[in-house]
Design a protein around this nucleic acid. Structure first.
Lengths: 207, 207, 207, 207
DNA sequence: CATGAATGAGCATTCATTCAT
DNA sequence: AATGAATGAATGCTCATTCAT
């Protein structure tokens, strides 16, 4: 009777995921507004009513997708390791990490990004869960490395925006269907790291 | 009676723009799907029916906005001038140019980008009119400069994606409401140019 | 353009009445909740959408019906005349008046009464527009007549409730389908007047 | 295994009452249609499914409530006693009896009356169980008393409608929220008896 | 050309009912 | 008997589009 029944809990979580997966798939294919609850239900293999047993309504589905994506956003061990190593290696690792996550979650991101851009609530949540979470980390990293002289004396705040902008922009270009980008995606981390990092080495490094 | 009556033509063009401006404004505020033709008509100061005298329907409005934006996309004299000058100066000029256009057209872009991401027809048109037009130019520029040894021997195709990604990404971060980015927008061209360009100079340039 | 265009105004009022008539008819036949907007639209000979051009929604229809009924609730000349005449004659006139109005508006009343009993907003409006409006008048009349010795020294407030109760109750019995009451409805005013009034004459009148 | 197992029977009856009480409570608060089976189940402390083990469906609940109310409708000893006494005393007793029952069962009546007015089956059942049962008794009483000269020579059939109308009407005014009526409810039997009865005494009684 | 009332297809949402456990 | 997750038919409402004036 309590909502802590572990079995019920598990089943409910499974249903939620089942529905969110279906929703993401349909949103990605047709956009949030053109997707109907009927389609989502069909894609999930449940009835329309069932959606409402697990979510407040259609409008809650993108938020649910964002939340699930955010849960994945833990920095993995590999990246944490790179934090302490060579600066350029960190940049490469970070780009690899981001590129991997983007590739992995592209359907989800394609599904929600347009709606995120348009829905104020979702926008705030997305900014908090993704943009800021990563920005803060990156900004701090840049600040420290600049102080240590490992990086050129740039403005950490703005540089972070530039770097994140590149992440986000590449995602958008993928969504827009840039074939070159999709085909050669695996080469992008190296290219990006080169583009950005080599501009970040201190002047002294150039001598 | 002919459709080449210059006065009629002019009036019709004015009406079209009046409606597109209103549509862009409403789309920017509420998104394409949440905007109603009634609102757009009100914002434009015309009746709903009038919209249908100038456009096939609501779905044609984003395309109309894209088309108008594309008309603005002529490379202005300043930029063309920079093409032939110092490489770094060109990068700064290009970023300034882009940043300015983004700032100038933000409402329009905010209005259509989410729909562009979701509507295949619009997506193709947008890619052709914006992404590819600039990409092609930039790619060629990089190719030439690399051949001349003015730039490090990078892959022009991928580098172009990186640079354009940064443009697009910064626009998206603005739309997402990043306050720092909006407040310090004028500093971004310099920062971006530094970030990217200094990574593009040939190794020899570092000595 | 102003909402004071007399022709538009007239047409709009006609449509509103057309819709309210249809709604009353359907509500009377099936009750508020079992009536669908589709049915109402069909009965009114308009499309569903048109209902929403004239009313906020289904829930506004009973309120509209109440309002129209209230507009009819002006005391007619006949009754005002009776106010100044013989007391018993006034009671007969009043009961005739009420009985007539009930008979006349039975469909409307049958349509809304069940919903009035259940919907707080509607209930308050109904009480204010019908019950209290008549109660106040009647109470004052009784008070004056009691002071003049034309009526037995009763409590005007409670007597008014009793009299109005009888009005309302007879309406309800009609709605419940009491055949005797419906068949012999024309005799009720006399019967009611006898029942109530002869109990209101002062003791002295019995000698 | 037999359905005459007395213990099983008792438990089942208890469950039925438990559910009907909950239903009456929820119907009274929100009306039949706005009440959901989920709410009723919660109020009854059972699951939704259980309701269907004891009733055919939601539609059967009002009938169940009416039936239980009807079971209470036995004329109690006091009233039977009054039948044989003084005529005026009988009227007072009858009004007291009715007023008491109305007060006692107001929640149930408020719960079902709106639905009774709208649902044909329920309407017939209600009329048979309540209106007619009392009407028949009262009509016969009046007929006898008129024959004996204890009452003025009125039409028993119509007078009965008038009296019952007052009962029903006062209930409706209570449901409508007439504060005076609720506050001074205990005084109403006397007032009503005076109103009605003194008009029923034979002319001779006035001397 | 402009208007805006009318249209009705389309959709999210609700909720009585079922049935496997 | 009891449960409550799943169901899906039913319905109120929106809004792009049409067209008579």
């Amino acid at each position: 009777m309590a909502d802590t029944d572990p079995i019920r809990e598990q089943l409910a979580a499974a249903r939620r995921n089942q529905i969110l997966d279906a929703a993401a798939q349909v949103f990605a294919a047709k956009g949030f507004h053109r997707a109907t609850t009927r389609e989502i239900a069909q894609a999930a293999g449940v009835s329309e009513g069932t959606i409402y047993n697990y979510f407040g309504g259609k409008a809650d589905l993108p938020a649910g997708i964002v939340m699930r994506l955010a849960d994945l956003e833990s920095l993995d061990a590999e990246l944490l390791e790179a934090l302490r190593g060579d600066v350029r290696a960190f940049f490469v690792a970070m780009f690899r990490h981001r590129a991997h996550r983007i590739e992995q979650s592209e359907e989800m991101l394609r599904a929600i990004l347009p709606e995120v851009l348009v829905n104020p609530d979702l926008r705030d949540r997305f900014r908090a869960d993704f943009v800021l979470r990563i920005a803060t980390l990156l900004e701090e990293y840049v600040r420290v490395r600049v102080a240590h002289g490992d990086l050129r004396p740039v403005d950490p705040e703005l540089v972070t925006r530039g770097v994140q902008g590149m992440f986000v922009g590449l995602l958008v270009l993928r969504i827009l269907g840039d074939e070159t980008l999709i085909e050669r995606w695996d080469e992008m981390p190296e290219v990006c790291a080169t583009l950005l990092f080599d501009g970040l080495v201190p002047e002294g490094g150039r001598r």
